[in-house]
């Protein structure tokens, strides 16, 4: 019973991952792709760590990685700020309306990912009412008009919009389990609204915050389509860099190296988050 799925995943998930690790140690082919291991009897291409040296020798790659981590962190934080009040409201609503409220959060998922990104092309476009309004306000203060589309701002808005439900759901699942008696007890002991939130609700919700953050942070870190569609030429992130190596310049060894570095970054961050989450549980 476990045989067929095991073999399938071994073939189309494990093997490709191993191939990618190997490819990162290969030489690039003359016309893109990979150089053959043995070109002919005279020249042996073999394996190399050249691509890794290249990655660490040019500051630009470190910069793109740092920028991507920053964008992913900013997206996670904004999603958290937007999702928290919504998740809290749903969790504190009567049981019978909760399902509908959650469904209303999931429903935008029903539209294609590209459609959700495309919607922001319309809203942020120079002729749209939103851009006109923003530039009208800027003009009042004597400032130059700004171009909202094809900017880092547009990329951030798109990232938040597409990933927001991933933050709401785990937060809600966590908040729903809180015993309301805890808040009553805190109130009886003289805690005001502010204290009740920061001393009771928030610490208890840390596991939800951590799982939501992972669900937003990881896909954003590797995202290429949103910067590709909503960003300008300068808004390249890790994903765009990888896409460029595989489909543009066709330097597959370097593309593989970038993918491995992305994997390592994700694993590092997951490891860090689980450690933090472990401490959070202790704190709660």
């Amino acid at each position: 019973m476990s045989g067929p799925p095991f073999v399938f995943l071994l073939l189309f998930f494990v093997a490709p991952s191993v191939i990618m690790v190997l490819a990162s140690f290969r030489y690039p082919g003359e016309f893109g792709g990979l150089a053959p291991l043995f070109a002919d009897t005279q020249t042996l291409h073999g394996l190399t760590v050249e691509t890794y040296e290249f990655f660490f020798s040019d500051i630009i790659y470190g910069y793109v990685f740092l920028k991507s981590i920053f964008v992913a962190l900013a997206t996670t934080l904004i999603c958290l700020l937007l999702a928290y009040p919504l998740a809290l409201l749903i969790a504190r609503s009567p049981k019978k309306s909760r399902d509908l409220m959650v469904l209303l959060v999931v429903l935008p998922f029903a539209s294609n990912f590209l459609v959700r990104v495309y919607a922001w092309m319309i809203i942020l476009g120079p002729q749209a009412a939103f851009s006109q309004a923003v530039n009208g306000v800027l003009a009042l203060f004597g400032m130059e008009p700004v171009h909202l589309l094809f900017s880092p701002f547009a990329v951030l808005v798109g990232m938040v919009y597409v990933h927001l439900p991933f933050m709401v759901l785990p937060l809600y699942t966590n908040l729903e389990k809180h015993d309301p008696a805890l808040l009553d007890a805190a109130q009886d002991l003289g805690a005001n609204v502010w204290h009740r939130f920061w001393r009771v609700t928030f610490p208890l919700s840390l596991p939800g915050i951590f799982s939501g953050s992972a669900l937003v942070f990881i896909p954003v870190l590797g995202m290429f389509a949103i910067p590709d569609i909503l960003g300008g030429t300068g808004d390249m992130l890790i994903g765009n860099l990888i896409k460029e190596q595989f489909l543009g310049t066709r330097d597959w060894p370097f593309g593989s190296t970038l993918s491995i570095m992305l994997t390592v970054t994700v694993l590092l961050i997951v490891w860090l988050t689980t450690r933090l989450a472990g401490r959070g549980r202790h704190y709660a």
Partner: peptide, 27 residues
Amino acid sequence: LNFMALTPVAMPEILLGVSLLLFFIQV
């Protein structure tokens, strides 16, 4: 098996995309 089934979805999508591209063409 659980790990093998869930990891492709848990990682950034682009990783599965490019590793399959490599695998299909190269192997």
